[in-house]
Design a protein around this nucleic acid. Sequence first.
DNA 1: ACATATCTAGACCGAATGGTCTAGTCGTGA
DNA 2: TCACGACTAGACCATTCGGTCTAGATATGT
Lengths: 185, 185
Amino acid sequence: MSNLPPTRDRLVAAAALLFQRKGYHGVGVAEILEASEAPKGSLYHHFPNGKSDLALAAAHFAAQETLRILDASFEDANTARDGITTFCYKLAKLFTLHDNWSGCPISSTLFESPSNQEFRLNTREIFQEWHEATKAHAIAKGAEPENADAMANALWMTLQGAWTMSRVRGTSDPIKQVPMLIFGS
Amino acid sequence: MSNLPPTRDRLVAAAALLFQRKGYHGVGVAEILEASEAPKGSLYHHFPNGKSDLALAAAHFAAQETLRILDASFEDANTARDGITTFCYKLAKLFTLHDNWSGCPISSTLFESPSNQEFRLNTREIFQEWHEATKAHAIAKGAEPENADAMANALWMTLQGAWTMSRVRGTSDPIKQVPMLIFGS
DNA sequence: ACATATCTAGACCGAATGGTCTAGTCGTGA
DNA sequence: TCACGACTAGACCATTCGGTCTAGATATGT
């Protein structure tokens, strides 16, 4: 257990990418296996519950990535608005890099059906984390707690919509519009 | 060809509903057939290309529904803001009616994979229609054309996000927040 | 050198997938 | 009454789905 074996990581990373682009049901296990160059046995060794376990892991992995981008965006920011603006532009760049098609990693992966309680719970949890992190960053940059909360709320709400609209239009422009929509021109 | 046979309509309506809740890949043809009480032969008679044709029809059907709700919302409105607010509340009610889970009918149905050009084109077209209709309504209620355009843009962007957040949180609250986010408290 | 636990490899499985096809039913106009 | 088009009915098909299983490779500790 010195360091995590690369196979598991490859599996998770490939799954995260594919789910983000095609949705949970849009990706077959075989496709993930091929993309990660992993044998089937390894999948079910690392994830006894198979695809759904892998999706959960992939979502959490992608959530961490996003959190890291958020942190980086606020690192050199002078104000909350600066941080959020940088964050949106970083996401826009990533979106373009992924052929103008990747969706929100969480909703793409975990929006399966109303009945899957576990997926819903994890989704809520991750969004809660994102919200808290954003709020904390905003406060650290001098925003009032109450204002920071509203700001985080507006960011994630608007960003979700912008993400969708970016896919619709095939352009990262909507994502870049987010700060303007939140803070006004 | 006096009036459309009910089978086709049932097929489309059932498909629209199911795709909205589970996504294109999340629904099987068999499930749609069962829900609409239609035999398989009818599906492939009315939609020679099968599932994908049906999805296109379902998306356009749902888009028309949405447009009708928009029209109704603006009917008795005094201002553009009024119309948009009513519209959001109507959608929120519908969302709650659908077990707090239905998504945007278009993106749920037509976000399939990067390669399906036809789906993407239709998606863009429908959103364009929604945008134009909203803009026209706003102008009819006295908004400046330029302002009306920005308003329509903000509405659909924010609404998309709110829709997603509503599913995440299992509450229609985010959808109800949209007017406040667009216009300020 | 050996024992043990971890991981890989892929053949294999039943179920479900979307789609095809042929036989037949039904309603309508000649 | 018959003929013809629209539509229904469901058996049937190849393929793919997610998942299981066993045999073996590989690494680690003794």
